[in-house]
Computed example of a mutant assay.
Amino acid sequence: MTAPALISPQARDALSGWLDHLRALDGAAEKTITAYARDVAGYLSFLARHRGGTEGLAALASVPLTDLRAWMAQERARGVGARSLARSLSAVKGFTAYLADRAGGSDATAVLSARGPKFRRKLPRPLSVEGAADMIDTAAAQAAEPWVAARDRAVIVLLYGCGLRISEALGLAAEAHPLPEVLRITGKGGKERLVPVLPVARGTVAEYARLCPFDLAPGTPLFRGQRGGPLNPRLIQSVMEKARMQLGLPATATPHAMRHSFATHLLSAGGDLRAIQELLGHASLSTTQAYTAVDAARLMEVYQSAHPRA
């Protein structure tokens, strides 16, 4: 991480120490680390300009609410959205708490108790059960070569049948085949979870492996591109894009929508929210709870279209 020149060496070292702490103890993903580094470095640069110079760690941990609000106002003025600013504030709070634990005589109450901007959370956009099945069949029909069709079907079935992220599906090594009844997946932040594998998913992967013209030796990727290298996620995105246009589905019918569909359909069938959280690998239950809003919205649509008094 390269911090702006306005930040004092002491603050730069503290920021580096906090980021190392997040990597080592919290298992934060590298993309999260990069975003947090950028957010906090920008905040520290603002404070240096706003307060007329660099300050010690105790002062940085005791920033008053007026200065924090001035930083937030600057961010909004330069076009930062409410969702992004809420993430930046979360990073600033985490860093401030880290400083307060290490800097004597500091009072971090103002920063730690500050409320972020309100924003409307985007709800997941799942496909219907029929739409998910149509997507799998239509996407697989795009390929001229049987092994490529089998590959595309296998990947999309893993997204929908196991709730995997596309990076998780394409990250499977060749030795994962034949798929076990329970698959150990390493997700965001290096967090591991166990995912049951349906017979249909095991079957589609086995069919792909049977037709694949490349040697699926241990230590090599399970899913391959046309030349034998690792499969680029963009190829699956492109296949699904063509399929959704043929099916008349919205632009939200992406690979990640198959994972959303997995969760929503489980919930609709009476699945336990905590169990779905574990299957998806969500760190927080609040993330999984977004699917309850989707389910309620769909229920209201059915009610309004079918109730005789609606």
Score class of each variant (00 low, 15 high):
Pro180Gly: 06
Pro233Tyr: 11
Gly203Ala: 12
Val294Met: 14
Ala139Trp: 06
Ile7Trp: 01
Glu130Asn: 02
Lys31Asn: 15
Ala293His: 15
Lys118Met: 04
Ala100Ile: 07
Leu99Thr: 00
Gln246Trp: 08
Gly53Gln: 11
Pro218Lys: 12
Tyr36Leu: 14
Ala297Thr: 01
Leu231Thr: 02
Leu194Arg: 10
Leu127Met: 03
Gly281Glu: 12
Phe262His: 04
Met300Asn: 13
Leu123Pro: 00
Val239Thr: 12
Thr54Ala: 14
Tyr303Arg: 13
Pro196Leu: 10
Ser286Tyr: 07
Trp147Asn: 00
Gln74Gly: 06
Pro213Gln: 12
Arg151Leu: 01
Leu112Cys: 02
Val205Asp: 01
Ala97Pro: 00
Gln304Phe: 15
Gln226Cys: 07
Pro213Lys: 15
Gly163Leu: 14
Thr34Gly: 09
Val155Ala: 12
Ala73Ile: 06
Leu172Cys: 05
Arg125His: 12
Ala209Cys: 08
Leu198Gln: 11
Lys188Arg: 06
Cys162Ser: 13
Ser16Ile: 04
Ala176Trp: 08
Arg69Glu: 10
Val92Asp: 02
Phe223Arg: 07
Ala73Gln: 14
Tyr291Phe: 09
Leu127Gly: 00
Arg51Ile: 07
Ala28Cys: 07
Gln277Arg: 11
Ala206Ser: 08
Ala77Arg: 10
Arg210Leu: 07
Ala77Phe: 09
Gly42Phe: 05
Leu172Ile: 09
Ile156Met: 15
Gly271His: 03
Pro233Ala: 13
Ala73Leu: 14
Ala176Thr: 10
Gly271Met: 08
Ala103Val: 07
Leu99Pro: 00
Leu194Ala: 11
Pro218Glu: 13
Leu273Ile: 12
Tyr36Cys: 05
Ala133Tyr: 06
Thr264Glu: 14
Arg23Leu: 11
Arg193Thr: 04
Met135Cys: 06
Pro4Met: 15
Ala257Trp: 03
Leu266Asp: 05
Pro233Val: 10
Ser62Thr: 04
Tyr291Glu: 03
Ala297Gly: 09
Arg12Cys: 03
Arg38His: 15
Ser90Phe: 10
Arg121Tyr: 09
Gly219Asn: 09
Arg224Cys: 01
Ala251Val: 12
Arg298Trp: 13
Asp26Ala: 13
Leu198Thr: 03
Leu158Phe: 06
Ala296Trp: 13
Arg184Ala: 10
Ala275His: 15
Cys162Thr: 01
Ala114Asp: 09
Ala139Gly: 02
Arg38Met: 08
Met135Ala: 11
Phe223Lys: 04
Lys93Arg: 10
Trp18Arg: 03
Ala61Asp: 01
Gly17Ser: 07
Ala97Arg: 13
His307Lys: 12
Ala296Asp: 13
Asp107Lys: 11
Arg125Ile: 00
Pro180Tyr: 15
Arg49Pro: 00
Phe46Pro: 00
Leu112Lys: 03
Leu216Cys: 02
Thr287Leu: 13
His282Tyr: 11
Ser167Leu: 14
Leu198Cys: 03
Gly161Trp: 04
Arg38Phe: 11
